[in-house]
């Protein structure tokens, strides 16, 4: 906990937070965008990140933690360099998402929710990515890959180092 006493954002991030605050009627409303910034700066929402957000927005650390754990886009552990979200909701499952999950787990030698030993990939399941007409789908970092097959997955993964 010692490190968290002085935890704060870099000057550049503090400037960005100032900009974000202008968009809202209250300071508190900036907390989701600021949590995204914290995740970027600290790698995940760990104690240091919680303390920095708490200090920047004058919200208690427990309160920030309550928010970070409510929303599934915030992570308590560092993720891999690339994050794969494989959708396994109904539309994707109807078209084979479960066997694609098995394929990914085997290929990367990890289970859902885990990160490869070399830190290259984190594998997560997603609850509907909103691309159901092109199922099955996955999101790798910011990009959608639709109409997936095992061969297509193998091809896509090559692009990410």
């Amino acid at each position: 906990m010692q490190g968290t006493m002085t935890a704060k954002f870099s000057e550049e991030m503090l400037k960005r937070i100032e900009e974000i605050l202008k968009r809202y009627a209250t300071k508190r409303a900036a907390v989701l965008p600021v949590l995204y910034l914290a995740q970027k700066e600290f790698g995940c929402i760990n104690d240091t990140a919680l303390a920095a957000v708490s200090r920047a927005l004058k919200i208690s650390r427990a309160d920030v933690y309550g928010l970070a754990t409510f929303y599934s886009m915030f992570h308590e552990e560092p993720l891999g360099r690339n994050v794969i979200f494989l959708c396994d909701n109904l539309a994707c499952t109807l078209l084979g998402a479960e066997s694609l999950r098995d394929h990914l787990e085997k290929k990367l030698d990890i289970r859902m929710g885990e990160t490869t030993a070399d830190g290259r990939f984190t594998l997560k399941n997603a609850e509907c990515l909103g691309a159901c007409g092109q199922a099955p789908v996955m999101l790798v970092n910011d990009d959608f890959y639709e109409g997936l097959t095992e061969a297509r997955i193998d091809e896509v993964l090559e692009k990410y180092k």
């Binding site: 809202y24 508190r28 989701l32 965008p33 409510f70 599934s72």
Partner: peptide, 27 residues
């Protein structure tokens, strides 16, 4: 107009949860 990015919670599609979420609370 501002874009406010949600953070992965289906419930925030419900209008009052969406409002809570914009206010920086749990949805």
């Amino acid at each position: 107009i501002r874009v406010h990015r949600g953070a992965g919670a289906y419930i925030c599609g419900e209008e009052t949860a969406l409002i809570e979420s914009i206010e920086g609370k749990r949805g």
